[in-house]
């Protein structure tokens, strides 16, 4: 099982590889796109940090990664593109190919179809935005030639086990660290980053804004009853404003099971994070993968070790709302 690590610059390659990265994903966004589409990305990350800025930088990163035997995947994973965007999109696609990237990470079936229509032979990976929740869906994308699929965050360990047992011949990637989206990524139609950081209500993720919540108990007949603000049903609806999706969410405890399911790689979210953070994230997960792979390993002992290492690395205890797989807590 490999660590799929974010990559924002060529200078990061060796350090992240040394920490245990087994493959990289990255994106490129420059003024060509930003000038035309200032409030929407080409790859699910807002403009600013978290992107390569030039194809020459991308090529250097790819060359350095390939020198270490590591592949680099290029994100073109917006949920959909429209016809007017394609002229520019082909520019980025061709540029990434010339830079030597190893695969495109895509979501949009229109893009998959367009690449096939033009006979592009580059391997395709499905991003989590393709919402592959079941083995039939895996087969659907395998028939399109997809070679790797990042599964949605919102699958339990048992559901991941069931899905993975029904498929073969395709790589599966599972989220393991950071950005535990509260909604299903590929079905969420909120647009984040509609303004700069200086206007938080427009910049922040819509799901985490503070909302005035009114609750109603429905009745088959008659008017709904209004719930008090103190009612636990109402207070629970405010959970997303109390917890931040990036407060070090973690699924490391599942590595023991994921390894035995044959999951090919685990994804660390983090394009745009400082290198130090990326480095510690990769080292944390890669060391646990080694531990999980040890023959004859004891599951309970692994779970204890993973929780201890999480507390030591991130100076936080395990919390159910920050756990990717809280059924393991």
């Amino acid at each position: 099982m490999k660590v799929l690590s974010p990559l924002d610059s060529a200078a990061e390659v060796e350090l992240l590889a040394d920490a245990g990265a087994g493959e990289f994903y990255c994106g490129l966004l420059d003024e060509r796109w930003h000038d035309r589409y200032p409030v929407m990305s080409i790859n699910r990350r807002p403009a600013g940090k978290g992107h390569f800025r030039t194809f020459s930088d991308l090529r250097e990163a790819v060359d350095r990664a390939h020198g270490l035997g590591l592949p680099v995947f290029f994100t073109l994973n917006e949920h959909y593109y429209t016809a007017g965007q394609y002229e520019l999109l082909w520019f980025y696609i061709d540029g990434a190919l010339e830079a030597g990237i190893d695969a495109f990470i895509v979501t949009d079936f229109g893009l998959i179809a367009s690449l096939q229509e033009r006979n592009y032979r580059m391997p395709l990976h499905c991003s989590t935005g393709t919402t592959v929740f079941n083995s039939r869906s895996v087969h659907f994308f395998m028939e399109l030639g997809v070679v790797n699929i990042t599964l949605p965050r919102h699958l339990s360990v048992a559901e991941l086990g069931c899905l993975s047992s029904h498929v073969s011949g395709v790589g599966l990637t599972v989220f393991i660290l950071n950005s535990r989206c509260v909604n299903v990524d590929g079905f969420c139609t909120f647009q984040h980053g509609l303004a700069g950081r200086e206007i938080p209500p427009m910049y922040r993720n819509a799901c985490m804004l503070p909302f005035q919540v009114s609750g109603f108990r429905m009745h088959e007949r008659g008017q709904p009853a209004v719930l008090t603000q103190e009612a636990c049903q109402v207070r629970r609806q405010k959970l997303w404003e109390r917890v931040h999706v990036d407060d070090y969410p973690c699924g490391a405890c599942a590595l023991y099971d994921l390894h035995r399911m044959g999951i090919g790689s685990v994804k660390i979210v983090g394009r745009g994070n400082p290198l130090e953070r990326k480095h510690s994230d990769v080292r944390f997960i890669s060391s646990l993968i080694e531990r999980a792979a040890e023959a004859g390993g004891d599951r309970d002992e692994f779970l204890r070790h993973a929780r201890g290492l999480y507390a030591q690395t991130y100076e936080r205890t395990c919390r159910p709302f920050m756990c990717y797989y809280p059924e393991l807590l």
Binding site: R180, V213, M218, C232, R236, V243, P326
Partner: peptide, 29 residues
């Protein structure tokens, strides 16, 4: 959501079809 002990649990969990009992309105300017 009827169980205060599950207030902070975020995951794929069992339910009693509470969705049929409750509607919530979320307002932000």
């Amino acid at each position: 959501c009827d169980d205060p002990d599950r207030m902070d649990y975020v995951g794929v969990q069992d339910c009693s079809r509470e969705c049929r009992d409750y509607v919530f309105q979320l307002d932000n300017p």
